[in-house]
């Protein structure tokens, strides 16, 4: 029997408009899956639930929402998308990214290959590496974000426990914990083979436009230029899901909402 999944997210304040665009782009691309969103207002195209007054700053709230709310929905898998994501088409073999594992978070570069002065949510690559090792990661450690990830319903508890464990270790070591690292930790503890989860293994599926090239006024009309410096190079068509943090920041800084005042979700 085919596994059932839904998309979910958290979108409060100015993110609500982005979430609406995300859901609209999905619908336009032929996506028929449901969108379940923790929000502070109604969002067209989404099933919305009261996000209540939860502190979103350290990125850990998503685990609370996942365990306390989203996991009560009867799906086999939950697919998180950041609100500032657009669908260019209906993704193919989405759950295939899980392989044999219960979670998929697209992994980026190996942390020990990053420049020394790189910052991973305020941590140097060396420190990030140390904390992951201390928490028990055995394999090479990869950087990761949390703009798109999938978790199997049966693994929600273990993912949340691992995230909390990493959070506690980071805090004990005198650093500021963040949900991105906690999620990356849970992923790298549960994935078996990290190589199978590299973002580059599925260039057709998801891409984060970190340099803002895919950021013309109408993202769906932008077209796709594989010559863009950070674009996946192996295909002529854009990935099914494009995360657009730069564009979102540009638009938000142009509005009344200061970028710094917006909780970082992606």
């Amino acid at each position: 029997m085919e596994a059932k999944y839904c998309y979910w997210s958290v979108a409060t304040g100015p993110y609500a408009a982005w979430m609406e665009r995300c859901a609209a782009s999905a619908q336009a691309a032929g996506v028929s899956k449901e969108f379940h969103v923790l929000a502070d207002q109604e969002i067209a195209g989404c099933e919305c639930y009261d996000a209540m007054d939860v502190d979103l700053r350290d990125g850990m709230a998503r685990f609370v929402y996942l365990k306390a709310a989203i996991s009560k929905l009867h799906f086999d898998h939950y697919v998180w998308v950041d609100a500032d994501t657009v669908f260019t088409r209906n993704p193919d073999r989405l759950l295939g990214t899980l392989g044999r594992g219960p979670i998929h978070v697209p992994l980026g570069e190996r942390v020990d290959h990053l420049p020394e002065d790189a910052s991973l949510r305020g941590l140097s690559p060396v420190r990030y590496h140390e904390l992951m090792r201390k928490a028990g990661v055995y394999n090479q450690i990869h950087a990761s974000r949390s703009a798109f990830w999938i978790v199997k319903r049966a693994a929600v508890d273990v993912v949340c426990e691992l995230a909390k464990h990493h959070y506690a270790i980071t805090k004990t070591c005198g650093e500021a914990p963040h949900g991105d690292a906690a999620l990356g930790y849970a992923m790298q503890m549960l994935c078996g083979d990290p190589q199978a989860h590299l973002a580059s293994r599925r260039p057709d599926l998801w891409w984060s436009d970190e340099s803002g090239e895919f950021a013309a006024p109408d993202p769906l009309a932008d077209g796709w230029d594989p010559r863009m410096p950070s674009a996946p190079r192996t295909q002529a068509a854009p990935p099914a899901l494009v995360h657009m943090p730069v564009r979102r920041r540009r638009e938000m800084s142009g509005s009344a909402v200061a970028v710094e005042a917006v909780p970082a979700l992606g």
Binding site: G136, M189, D193
Partner: peptide, 11 residues
């Protein structure tokens, strides 16, 4: 046993 034991074998 590692946290990902069955996935480890199957992968």
């Amino acid at each position: 046993y590692p946290k990902d034991f069955p996935v480890f074998y199957e992968s």
